[in-house]
Design a protein around this nucleic acid. Structure first.
Lengths: 129, 129
DNA sequence: CTGTTTGCAAATCCTTTGCAGCTGG
DNA sequence: CCAGCTGCAAAGGATTTGCAAACAG
């Protein structure tokens, strides 16, 4: 059980932090490989999943292609571009105000543990194209 | 361009309707095969994607395993069970009241075309287990 | 006829797993 | 020392694609 402090895990966590913008596992992998050329993709996946389970990262439900990871762990919402798949934070806390876990639980009988609010749109770059 | 009216497409659309509860592509495939034993999975995928593009269906961002399709096209939110992956509607319109596309657009610069609100929870059946 | 659609199989993409060797504490 | 971690390669599951034959309009 005792989690070890390995180079790989440190670099992966750090890259997830530095990349910032909701990288896919593959993007993390490529970034990590610049510092640890021999790292394997399996290790990246294993470590990212571990971080998520530890609550030190979250995965963004993007629905477009690959899974995306987020170093932020507070509730906030995202906007995903339907053309290029880029994901950005929408930091306005406003949008979570209308969301009430107790109401949702009452409405469906589930025990609610969280929620995701994702906007779909076209990013500025794709609007021009 | 002219969309043809084929048996396959009619049966697939109808099954998506009848299954109702957010089936995966595979579930639709199995249901369709009961009426059209020779249907191919590729056709199911192609047709479901077509329905989504035509705006006659939506795909639910579930984030757990396979993609799920929904015959409803009005904005409503879902709750997904973190254990078994079941998806249900949460019909209470309440939860969409706090969501304003114009505000979101202003906050991130995207052109907003829609949103998904997904609750994560544990369904009644899994709570007992 | 003619351009869509289909079925099949192969291909692709993303992610997980089995295993033997390595390593941090 | 030894449980946890790594790298590799292979497996796995979901979805897409190429192509020739079938078919709707």
């Amino acid at each position: 059980m005792a989690s070890r402090n390995t180079v790989q895990q440190r670099v992966i966590a750090q890259q997830l932090m530095e990349l910032g913008n909701h990288p896919t596992a593959d993007e993390v992998y490529r970034a990590v490989r610049r510092q640890l050329p021999s790292v394997s993709k399996a290790t990246v996946y294993r470590t990212l999943n571990k971080l998520v389970h530890l609550g030190e990262a979250t995965c963004v439900i993007a629905g477009l292609g690959a899974e995306r990871f987020d170093h932020r762990t507070d509730e906030h919402c995202h906007v995903v571009c339907m053309k290029c798949g880029t994901v950005q934070d929408v930091s306005e806390g406003v949008f979570n105000d209308g969301v009430d876990h107790a109401d949702a639980a009452a409405a469906c009988g589930y025990e609610i543990v969280g929620h995701d609010l994702v906007f779909e749109g076209i990013c500025p770059a794709c609007q021009r194209a």
